[in-house]
Amino acid sequence: MIRAAFVLAGLGLGLTAVTAQSNPIAERQQTMKGVGAATREGAAMAKGDAAFDAAKAQAIFKTYADAARKMPGLFPDSSKTGGETTAAAKIWEDQAGFKAAFAKFESDAAAGASVANLDGFRGAFGAATKNCGACHEVYRIKK
């Protein structure tokens, strides 16, 4: 019985992975939802609405770094439209700039991964989230 449950769980994970691979719009939207959740948590710490927690800070920057590595590969030509995407045509017109924006985001996330106090977190979090805004200005359609 337990073995069957593991097999079914494994099949479910495999199906989810296949679905995500075949639907890059859904995968990038899901990835950005994770970034958004991490940003909300980080903003609460940065503002003092939540206590600084080094482990949570590291998790936020890990979420950012993981997304930065993953996102550039989730924009094949076949995903320019559909799925309620807010991806701007500029992504495909300026692949070098788009990839450079994510490289900078990853670099800033890596720099923040070892923050040990609130002041350090605020600086690193501000730098990383500034990248989010800059990228969205150029590469995202405003709705």
Rank of each mutant, 00 (worst) to 15 (best):
M45A: 09
S78I: 06
K47S: 15
I91C: 07
F52E: 04
G48T: 07
A59P: 07
R69D: 15
P72R: 01
Y64T: 00
D53G: 12
L118P: 01
M45Q: 08
S114Q: 15
L118V: 13
F125K: 00
Q30P: 03
F75R: 09
R28V: 05
Q95F: 03
A101T: 00
E106W: 03
Y64K: 00
S79H: 12
G73D: 15
A100N: 07
F61L: 04
S78C: 08
D77Y: 02
A100V: 05
V35P: 00
A50D: 11
G34D: 08
A51K: 13
K47E: 15
T85H: 07
E84I: 08
E27V: 12
I60F: 04
A124V: 06
A68W: 01
G112H: 02
A103N: 08
T85E: 02
N117R: 06
G97C: 04
G34T: 09
I60D: 02
G120I: 03
A51T: 09
D108P: 02
T86I: 12
G73W: 07
I60S: 03
F98I: 15
G120S: 05
T39S: 09
E93T: 14
A89G: 06
A46M: 04
G97P: 00
A87L: 08
A103S: 13
A67T: 00
D119E: 14
A88D: 13
G83V: 08
A65M: 08
D66N: 10
K90L: 13
R122N: 13
M71K: 06
G97M: 07
G126I: 10
L118W: 07
K99F: 05
A65F: 12
A68E: 02
I91V: 13
W92L: 09
A37H: 09
L118R: 10
M32N: 07
E84G: 15
D94H: 01
I91R: 05
R122K: 15
G83P: 05
Q29E: 11
F61E: 01
A38G: 12
F61Q: 01
D77P: 04
K90D: 15
A55F: 10
E41P: 03
S114T: 14
G83F: 12
T63E: 10
A50R: 13
V115D: 02
G36E: 10
Q29Y: 08
A59I: 06
A88I: 09
R69C: 04
S79F: 05
K62Y: 04
A103K: 13
D77F: 03
D94F: 01
A68P: 02
R28T: 11
A44N: 11
K33C: 05
K99N: 14
F105C: 00
A68C: 09
T31M: 05
A55L: 05
Q29A: 14
G82L: 13
G83L: 11
